[in-house]
Design a protein around this nucleic acid. Structure first.
Length: 214
DNA sequence: CGACCGATCGTCT
DNA sequence: GACGATCGGTCGA
């Protein structure tokens, strides 16, 4: 039935990270390391809007060894170590020198669930397997060694299998864990498929707003 | 439920 | 030397 298409530069190099963060909902993240395949449908994202966004590592045009990857061309992986133990996977967007990125916060497991269980040390499949950015990376086998890798490769890439998410199914809230960002901490740059059990956070998040008509 | 806490280490000041 | 774009557990109401 629906054909699977790898997302390419025409998807990643667009200029609006908010739009891309929304469109990423429903797309599939796939990794294939040593011929071991795992995949999951993206259900939660956060947009980091470049040099003017206080929540972004690239705020103010900051360039360090770590953040340099954010200045790569759209379609590059940006993975960093958070709290000394979690690897957080981002998708770089926009053209080279414009450090936009989308954090993948949660996916719904599709293929390679046994592998994901092994990687995470969990016993059985439940919503904790790929809920939250640290868990996504762990289950998908992603770590900082993959930062700056191309997302057009066959090891790490995204795909569209025809699954569509209506605007009425999309919720938005402020981003998680960015209190240090002052006013920008309140921007509604976190997007999720409403009522999906793999979305992080508590049920009935009061801050959740619906896009489009409910 | 909500609040809090410990784990753990690369990066930047 | 301080601090995270987190997570899972515990404790108390």
């Amino acid at each position: 039935m629906s054909e699977i298409k790898k997302l390419d530069y025409s998807f990643y190099t667009r200029t609006d990270p908010i739009q891309i963060a929304k469109e990423l909902l429903g797309k599939i993240l796939i990794t294939r390391f040593n011929n071991v395949l795992t995949s999951g449908r993206i259900v939660e994202t956060e947009a980091y809007a470049g040099v003017t966004d206080r929540a972004s590592h690239a705020f103010g045009g900051r360039r360090t060894k770590r953040t340099e990857t954010m200045y790569h061309k759209g379609g590059t992986a940006y993975v960093f170590l958070c709290y000394g133990m979690h690897h957080l996977f981002n998708i770089v967007t926009n053209e080279r020198e414009i450090p936009h990125a989308i954090l993948i916060r949660s996916v719904e497991p599709l293929q390679g669930i046994e592998t994901m269980l092994k990687r995470t040390g969990k016993k059985k499949l439940d919503y904790t397997l790929t809920r939250g950015p640290g868990n996504v990376s762990k289950a998908m086998g992603l770590s900082t060694q993959h930062s700056a890798k191309s997302l057009l490769s066959n090891q790490i890439f995204l795909a569209d299998d025809g699954y569509r998410v209506a605007n009425s199914q999309i919720g938005s809230t402020p981003r998680i864990g960015v209190d240090y960002a002052g006013e920008d901490a309140m921007l509604p740059y976190r997007f999720m498929i409403k009522e999906n059990k793999y979305v992080s956070g508590k049920r009935g998040d009061r801050r959740l707003k619906t896009l489009g008509k409910g």
